[in-house]
Amino acid sequence: MTKIMKIIKAAIKSIIVAFLFVVAICACVIFIGKEEIAMVSYVLQLITVQEDNVQKIIPTLEDGVLTNYPTFGTKYATLKIPTIGLEQPVYYGANNTILNSGIAHDEKSYFPGEGGSIIYAGHNFSTILANLPKMNEGDAIIVESNYGTFEYVMVGSKIIKETDVEQVPIQKEKEMLMIYTCWPINNISHATERFVVYANLVK
C-alpha cells in the first residue's frame, strides 16, 4: 500500500510540475505576443458569422429619425403597386442575390419616413419589375415596412443612361421614392439604360 501511495504521490507531483510548465509557457506567450493575439482575435471575429446578429431588432421611426437600421441583406418591407399587380419583398442592400430575389434598397439612399431620397432597384424580369413602364402618373405605390406603412404617388418617369446618377439624386429635403429597372425590358445581355419611376410621399 505504501509503495502504491508513493507512486501515486510521485505521479501527482509530476503532473503538478508539468502543469506549472504549461502555465509558465502560456504566460510567456500571452506576455510576449499580446498584440499578435489581439490582432488574431479581431480578425477571427471579422471572419466568423455571428448568428446572433441576425436582424431581430425592429427598426423604430420617431420624428423622422430611424433607429435600429436593417442589416445588409435583410428583408424589411414589401413594395406594392396595385395598378400593375406588383408585390415584391424589399431587401436592404444591392447585390446579385438580392436582385434575383426581389427589390434592392440602395444603401446610399434614405429609408421611408426619413424625409429624403429612397432608391429601389429591381431586375426587368416578368416576376419583378417588367411591368414598371406600364405605370401612369397618379398610380399609388405602397411600401409596407416593419416599422410603418408609407404611401407614394407616381409623379413621372424617365429613361436614363446607367451612368446618369444625377437623374437619381440623393437628397434630404424632400421624401421621394425612385424605382428603376433595366431598359429596354426585353434586352439581350447588358443593358446600358434604366427606366426610372419618381413618386412623392402622400402619407
Binding site: N96, T97, L99, N100, H123, N124, F125, C182, N186, N187, I188, S189, H190, A191
Partner: peptide, 9 residues
C-alpha cells in the same frame, strides 16, 4: 446563373 435571367438569353 445570376446573370442568366437578366441577360435575356
Amino acid at each position: 446563373d445570376e446573370y442568366s435571367l437578366q441577360s435575356g438569353l
